[in-house]
């Protein structure tokens, strides 16, 4: 029962991640799984720090909106 609920949550998270720009979802995944900071992520993606922050923050806001729908 609990297992089922968890997998439903995960399916929703996956669907919502797919609604994001690819760059946004890739950055969020990478941040969570690698434990990289904004600075490290920006360096890895060769983009300015502000751009990386923007991708992730916008992605998080969209993700929250999607999950709360």
């Amino acid at each position: 029962m609990e297992r089922l609920e968890i997998s439903e949550d995960q399916a929703r998270l996956r669907d919502c991640l797919q609604e994001l720009d690819e760059r946004q979802s890739a950055a969020i995944r990478s941040a969570f799984l690698d434990g990289s900071t904004y600075e490290e992520l920006a360096k890895k993606a060769s983009v300015p720090l502000g751009t990386m922050k923007s991708w992730i923050r916008r992605g998080l806001l969209k993700l929250r909106a999607c999950l709360e729908r």
């Binding site: 941040a31 969570f32 990289s36 900071t37 904004y38 992730i56 923050r57 998080l60």
Partner: peptide, 8 residues
């Protein structure tokens, strides 16, 4: 951002 671990 704290949960993601992206903060300095």
């Amino acid at each position: 951002e704290y949960v993601l671990g992206v903060l300095g």
